[in-house]
Design a binder for these strands. Sequence first.
DNA 1: ACTAATAACATTTTT
DNA 2: TGTTATTAGT
Length: 765
Amino acid sequence: MNADFLNDLNESQRNAVEYIDGPSLVIAGAGSGKTRVLTYKIAFLLEMGMKPWNILALTFTNKAAREMKERIALLVGPDRSQTLWMGTFHSLFNRMLRQESSLLHFTSNYTIYQPGDCKSLINGILKEMGLDNKVYKPGAVCGKISEAKNALILPDQYMADLETYQRDNRQKMPALGQIYKKYVARMHQANAMDFDDLLLYTYLLFEHYPEVRHKYASRFQYILVDEYQDTNYAQHEILRLLSEGNDHVCVVGDDAQSIYSFRGARIDNILKFTQQYQGAKLFKLEQNYRSTQTIVGAANSLIAFNKEQIKKDVYSKNEIGRPLVLNIAYSDVEEGEIVCNRIHALHAQKGLKYQNMAILYRTNAQSRIFEEGLRKRMIPYRIYGGRSFYDQKEIRDVLAYFRLVINPNDEEALKRIINYPTRGIGNTTMEKLIHAAVNSEVGIWEVLKDPLVFNVTLSAATHKKLESFYEMIIGFIEKREEEDAYQIGSRIIKESGIFQEAYKSHDIESQTMQDNLSELLNAMNTFVEIQKESGEEVHALLTDYLSEVSLLSDVDNQETENKDMVTLMTVHSAKGLEFEAVFIVGMEENLFPNSMAMYSQREMEEERRLFYVAITRAKNFCFLSCSKMRFHYGKMDFCEPSSFLKEIDKQYLRLEVEREEYRSELPHESLFNRNKLAVSQDLHTRGKLHAINSDSEVVTEGNTLDTVEVNGQILKSGLTVEHDRFGVGEILSLEGDPGNVKATIKFRNSGEKCLLLKYAKIKLI
DNA sequence: ACTAATAACATTTTT
DNA sequence: TGTTATTAGT
């Protein structure tokens, strides 16, 4: 055996790696080398003679799996690492379900419904049942169903439960059980599964078919689970069914980083692991190798406010490092300016690469302002989440064609495209078809095949249109096993008329549509190429492509090339990542912590853990910021600093005042006395802006200028100007270098502001 | 059946 | 603010 690599580990890591005789729980503090333990443990198992296909390793994202495989390959070679069963619960059990689908009365080419499809299906069911979709909000209904599925509660059981019924009744939604039941039936008829079904049906398969369970339980002799704190009840039960009897299970996680309870994650899974797995060994990794002592200290002081947690003492032996810095901006736009300026400064003055910096926010909607700020400065950035490529209209339309071709029972796909591009099949016709389908308890596709059989009354013209649509799809279906994904993909785009639709006009809209279409085809082409390279003479079929695409997450989608770009993402998607410098923005009450969490202790603790995750992403620099006001649905809202800020031990936090005039303008009293937010230095004893910030701030020398020319306008002190947001005001002074001029302007209604003329839209009047 | 115009509504986080 | 659902007009 060659396991010299174990010498790379510290003692507690090594202990966790070497224990393979029974169940174990590894509590891994932030930055303590969790991934290292997992990869080394798998390598160790392989060196001990275990076969790669006997190991099941479950990760939180596909990207995490990919990276872990690469690291294992370095330890034991690519051959063995390649054949490991490693991936997310969803993707691995999806693979398995496609093999075993007939037992569950699905075919192997079932569609995976996206949340949008689920909502639309719910909408249809509501209409059918004559329920008001203002009372039964489709999103909320989906949430309830998802919750039930994650707790492994089936419709009949749901309806039989009195407590559940009473709760639903109180929420004015007594029919939820009925809707759930119908939903399951319709999903089945459509040969479709949603995300939760991938877990639920896996559980049911193992529960009802002992021989299937045994097959997989004996194949997987050792099971490892990463990010165990974010698993839900269904995942917990799947794990139990697969490991019962041998208990060779190792789960790794950190209860302080549990941030997915809204998705059904049960923190109890990790808190009670040692009770559920008798004789389980507990290992704790407490040394943080990632961050400075200050960052670890700040994070510890924050998380101490949470009640329920496993006791641990995370520490760092790295440098003490610099304090966290808090900036308070006047507006959301200014917060963007401050952050982007500092990113620029860190890059220009400290030589920090853009790829080592990240802006983390609570909600996707916050990204736009930072995007604009970075664009103006020509700073390259990459944004994750929000509306991704696959969420765009034309892409979803094309994917709907693909889905229908793979699975003609996919009704959401059918409804989406039967009249796109427009071919004269309108609402009335669709209503008729749906009505006939529901009445005869068959799918719409069946009705479409021969409407007359189902007594649908149609004009001859409409009949003709339906027929030619049907024939077109049949034509594609005939080719789907014959051509590879790229070939049939381009065929569908052309023959369906989508291509024509995109090229019929020359405005910007159709330009982006054209770009998106060719990008999609490109992606399909590379998919086919990669499949070909991996050896098999098997075609990369459209069905393979679809299956892959439906389970991709935004983080998975990231290009592997290391481009030098600033990362923008939600705190949630930053889990597991690390950066030299992290900017945590929007630190305001009702935003972070989010207003939805305000009235529940449990959710507040989750928000706090989320903030903990955000802070611990930083290796060296952590910048916090908030704004006094912010645009919200087109209205300006006033904000207060987050209550979490005052939970950070004051010795680790420094308040930085961006602009001199804020000294008088900011309600320091209310901020720092009434809220008892600690400030490490006395604001009033500090010098001018550039003196305070000289170590990490853009240093703007205060050369006073008399006149400046900007965009052909000659500006000087005393002149009156107009600004988009702030209104009319008088220039008080101008300073800076030509081309980078700051103007102090006293606005009539918005007070005194200091603006960079390079960016501010100012009109002389 | 399609288009344009207006009203309503929404943002928490994601496999 | 930006998107989506509904409505009225062609």
